[in-house]
């Protein structure tokens, strides 16, 4: 497992979502794992239950790009 710091994956803009458990989403430290790599990013997650949101633009943008790079390693 390789450890990286990938702050460019972090998503800090305000989100329109709130958790069904009643908690609010706050930036939280999250580990992203793929193809044997692991790096830490900050993503919106529920302060109560820990549900992590991967917003659409992140999933289809930077995250996809990093997935492709890791797949070609």
């Amino acid at each position: 497992m390789t450890h990286h710091s990938r702050n460019d994956l972090s998503f800090s803009s305000a989100t329109e979502w709130r958790c069904r458990c009643g908690g609010t989403l706050v930036p939280r430290k999250v580990a992203a794992l793929y193809m044997g790599s692991r790096f830490e990013v900050e993503l919106p997650a529920c302060e109560q239950c820990g549900f992590i949101l991967v917003p659409e633009e992140l999933a289809l943008g930077k995250m996809l790009e990093v997935e492709r790079i890791l797949e070609d390693k």
Binding site: K29, A31, A32, L33, L43, A59, V66
Partner: peptide, 13 residues
């Protein structure tokens, strides 16, 4: 209304 997907796995630290 919308759908998307990704392959990375995320875990709270």
């Amino acid at each position: 209304c919308n759908a998307w997907s990704h392959r990375m796995i995320l875990e709270l630290v």
